[in-house]
Simulated scan of single mutants.
Amino acid sequence: MPEVIFTGPAGRLEGRYHPPKTKSSRIALILHPHPQFGGTMNNQVAYQMYYMFAERGFAVLRFNFRGVGRSQGSFDHGLGELSDAAAALDWVQSFNPDARACWIAGFSFGAWIGMQLLMRRPEVEGFISVAPQPNLYDFSFLAPCPSSGLIVHGAADRVVTPNDMQSLIDKLKTQKGIVIDQQIIDGANHFFEDKVDELIDVCGTYVDKRLEAAASEEDAA
Rank of each mutant, 00 (worst) to 15 (best):
1 M>Q: 10
2 P>W: 09
4 V>Q: 15
5 I>S: 13
9 P>L: 13
16 R>E: 15
17 Y>F: 15
19 P>N: 13
21 K>I: 01
21 K>W: 02
24 S>C: 01
29 L>Q: 00
30 I>V: 12
35 P>Q: 12
35 P>H: 10
37 F>G: 11
40 T>A: 11
44 Q>C: 00
49 M>A: 15
50 Y>I: 10
52 M>P: 06
55 E>D: 15
61 L>D: 02
62 R>C: 02
63 F>Q: 00
72 Q>W: 02
78 G>R: 04
78 G>Q: 06
78 G>P: 04
79 L>P: 03
80 G>S: 09
81 E>R: 03
82 L>M: 04
83 S>F: 03
83 S>H: 06
84 D>C: 08
85 A>V: 04
86 A>T: 08
87 A>E: 03
88 A>S: 04
88 A>D: 01
90 D>C: 04
94 S>L: 07
95 F>A: 14
98 D>A: 14
101 A>Q: 08
102 C>L: 14
106 G>Y: 00
110 G>V: 01
110 G>M: 00
111 A>F: 07
112 W>D: 06
112 W>T: 06
113 I>D: 02
115 M>E: 13
115 M>T: 14
115 M>C: 11
117 L>W: 01
121 R>G: 14
124 V>S: 01
125 E>F: 03
128 I>G: 02
129 S>C: 15
129 S>D: 14
133 Q>T: 06
135 N>L: 09
135 N>R: 12
137 Y>E: 12
139 F>E: 01
140 S>A: 13
140 S>Y: 10
142 L>N: 11
145 C>W: 04
145 C>V: 11
146 P>C: 14
147 S>Y: 06
147 S>C: 14
147 S>Q: 13
149 G>Q: 08
157 D>V: 04
157 D>P: 05
160 V>I: 14
163 N>T: 05
165 M>H: 05
169 I>L: 15
169 I>D: 07
169 I>W: 08
170 D>T: 14
172 L>S: 06
173 K>V: 06
174 T>Y: 10
175 Q>A: 15
177 G>K: 13
178 I>C: 15
179 V>D: 09
182 Q>K: 13
186 D>Y: 02
187 G>T: 04
195 K>W: 00
199 L>S: 10
202 V>P: 13
203 C>Y: 03
204 G>K: 04
205 T>D: 08
206 Y>W: 15
208 D>A: 07
212 E>W: 09
213 A>G: 12
213 A>W: 08
216 S>R: 15
219 D>G: 11
219 D>A: 15
221 A>C: 13
221 A>K: 12
221 A>P: 06
